[in-house]
Write a protein that binds this DNA or RNA. Structure first.
Lengths: 253, 253
DNA sequence: TGAATAGTGTCTATAAGACAATATCCC
DNA sequence: GGGATATTGTCTTATAGACACTATTCA
């Protein structure tokens, strides 16, 4: 029990809490890091910022920051994302907590990894609005299906060095996305509405990094009830225009 | 590309780290809590200890403890489990991190939830060896399939009050187990070897809380290659004895 | 009209579930 | 032999994939 605080005894809980010394023990810092992902031109992309400070100065990092003592983890993730990217995605989800002792050379930092999904127009707009050493990098997944492991990032075909364990964090995010797409065939928040079934299929193929059967995909996604047809069709295409869809706002059943 | 320093900073990373003050910010405590689960008489069970100290004195809690600054999260989970239960399961896996601001009335405590699976003989032996206010409680899941949410625990049919957010943590553990069993039809470490296909099916039904198709289950599990027949058969049963199996030790491919 | 992609109908292969028939133990 | 459960084989049904065919737009 090396690290367990020795608790003062008191007869009732109120007195106990009044006498509790929250500063008695050395404790780690807790941070959140967010993998903000989208799909651009059939490829997964993510938002990165170049580090201006030590440690890992000059490397590329996920949007991240320390958790305030009076703020929940989810709130910290949303705050950090808003501060560093200006984007407020509808879906921000906790992934995994990285706690290797030496993952940050400054001091012990435990990082709660999150991922967030956004359509590519909002992602690129966010990056353009902050020209200051941020980029939307291509995600290169060096493993198939659900294997897992660190991923790599590139800009214009040139590899970028990631800071800390952010390659592992992005790998976990991609793995989670693939799991989710396998279960529920929906391109969670990666598409701007309205979209065609082909757009949705392209997103799935980009995330899964493999071809999906068109007929089966259409059947599944239409049968799922997750999409509603708008009645409108594409225009400005030089072929038969496709039906446009939106995600169904499902009432809480 | 090089950014302009806005504040004085050391030129090299070594000097920066030497001057870093790890105590500059108020920070949360970090704990691990482990849902140690097994199956007894067709029902999920978990190991609980009655709290002797405030807060939540008298309520039942998962084995848990604070993370040492020089120990990884996984190491903390294994250590806590060994200290509080004496059990060293082969599979201990991180689940989710609970970070509500008020989840612990003492101070801000962020808890990294783990789950561990063990066969019921080892679990009950561990509980008997520590008669001191520990128990193996029945897990009652008030939701179906993958719905999720807090679960309840009972001893001899009487409900037990859980401390902190441990009902939610156990709920997350059950949800994860159901996901895993759906993918890979294997009773991860919940059975002592050797076992029959019926034993394995009973474990699945206990975890999933629904009947599974016997024929289909046999086909899937035998085709998976995860089991090897021992060549032995049950004895001491008053019917045709079943083949005994072990889990295949798969070579790392 | 032709190029291109959207959308439909149907066949086949595979997996899951139902169920009957047989096997093997203890009593 | 009778009771009980294991194990095997076959049939039916649901689903995914393959593929041919029709539809609709613009150039």
């Amino acid at each position: 029990m090396a690290s367990k605080p020795e608790t003062p005894r008191a007869d009732d809980e109120g007195a106990f809490l009044a006498g509790y010394d929250a500063r008695a023990f050395e404790r780690p810092s807790v941070a959140v890091d967010v993998s903000l992902l989208s799909v651009r031109d059939g490829r997964l992309v993510t938002f990165l910022a170049r580090r201006k400070d030590h440690p890992h100065r000059g490397r590329w990092a996920l949007p991240g920051g320390f958790v305030n003592v009076r703020e929940s983890l989810n709130a910290a993730a949303s705050r950090v994302l808003a501060e560093k990217t200006g984007v407020r995605p509808t879906h921000v989800e906790q992934l995994f907590t990285f706690g290797a002792v030496d993952r940050d050379p400054r001091t012990r930092v435990i990082s709660v990894a999150y991922y967030a999904l956004v359509d590519v127009a909002r992602l690129t707009a966010a990056a353009i609005a902050r020209a200051d050493d941020v980029c939307v990098a291509d995600v290169v997944v060096p493993w198939a299906e659900q294997t897992g492991g660190p991923i790599e990032v590139e800009r214009d075909g040139a590899p970028l060095r990631l800071a800390f364990d952010h390659a592992e964090q992005l790998g976990t995010a991609v793995q989670r996305m693939r799991e989710k797409l396998g279960h529920a065939p929906i391109g969670h928040q990666l598409l701007a509405e309205p979209f065609t079934l082909r757009d949705l299929q392209d997103v799935h193929e980009a995330v899964l990094d493999r071809a999906v059967n068109k007929d089966s995909f259409r059947r599944k996604v239409l049968a799922s009830g997750d999409l509603v047809a708008t009645g409108d069709k594409q225009n400005d295409v030089d072929h038969r225009p496709a039906e446009l869809y939106r995600f169904a706002r499902r009432s809480a059943v």
